[in-house]
């Protein structure tokens, strides 16, 4: 029988450390599949964040760098400026990209750096045990918002993608989700677009991915996917933002 489905060359054949039902494994694989399809594995440099994906370089089979918490886009800016012939992308969570690293995010985008950003929005700090993230929904219970996020005490969920879309230096922003096979396919096509933009020197491209975190949401994997569909995407509407 002919084998027609293979693991991507850009992924090591190892088990990941992610929790059951977590979206990171899917997102990692989508990135790896696109890098394979575009034939850019040998010139790609990935930047892993601080957060659940901190050891993403143990799963991706191409050159990678660690970055301090929030500083991935500063690190990526420099790598791309020094080696414009390489394909450079960051993979960051909501705390990394939209809280501690907001400044780096906004300024890299505003400079129109020719980079690709994969932004995982799971509405909590996963690695540290589920504290409130900038993207936590109003009313959502976390270990630091025991009665749910309250707009008066904690402010509103931060829509960083919409904020970035206002900047003239930004070329492409799309919000996608992993809550169903159809949405995963859309996510894959957005990731492809974001990498193609860099290959074509089009400028700053970001894909925000709504991703399940069953452990910190206190839900089963299936309930988590439904929660994205029923609650999260109402706050964070899917589709092309810019």
């Amino acid at each position: 029988m002919e084998k027609i489905f293979f693991p991507p060359e850009s992924l090591y054949d190892v088990p990941t450390h992610y929790c059951p039902g977590c979206g990171h494994g899917i997102a990692h694989r989508l990135v790896a599949e696109i890098i394979d399809q575009l034939g850019i594995r040998e010139k790609t440099i990935g930047i892993a964040p601080v957060g659940c994906a901190v050891i993403a370089y143990d799963y991706w089979k191409f050159d990678c760098s660690e970055a301090a918490h929030g500083r991935a886009l500063a690190v990526a800016t420099a790598i791309k400026r020094v080696r414009p012939q390489n394909i450079v992308f960051t993979y960051q969570g909501d705390g990394d990209l939209a809280a501690i690293g907001t400044n780096e995010t906004i300024h890299a985008a505003n400079r129109g750096e020719n980079l690709t950003v994969i932004f995982i929005n799971n509405a909590v700090y996963g690695m540290t045990g589920g504290q409130m993230a900038p993207t936590t929904l109003l009313g959502q219970k976390t270990s630091t918002t025991l009665d749910g996020r309250d707009r008066q005490k904690h402010g509103y969920p931060l829509k960083i993608s919409e904020m970035l879309a206002l900047l003239p230096g930004v070329h492409y922003i799309e919000r996608v989700s992993l809550h169903s096979p159809q949405e995963v396919l859309k996510a894959k096509s957005a990731i492809r677009q974001a990498f193609e933009n860099q290959i074509n020197n089009a400028g700053f491209s970001l894909v925000e991915i709504l991703s399940p975190c069953p452990t910190c949401w206190g839900l089963s994997p299936k309930e988590s996917l439904d929660w994205i569909r029923d609650h999260m995407q109402k706050e964070f509407p899917l589709g092309r933002i810019k």
Binding site: A67, A68, V75, A76, A78, I79, R81, V82, N86
Partner: peptide, 10 residues
């Protein structure tokens, strides 16, 4: 952190 990145790239 830009210095970190540039140095990482050689």
């Amino acid at each position: 952190n830009m210095v970190y990145g540039a140095s990482a790239a050689g």
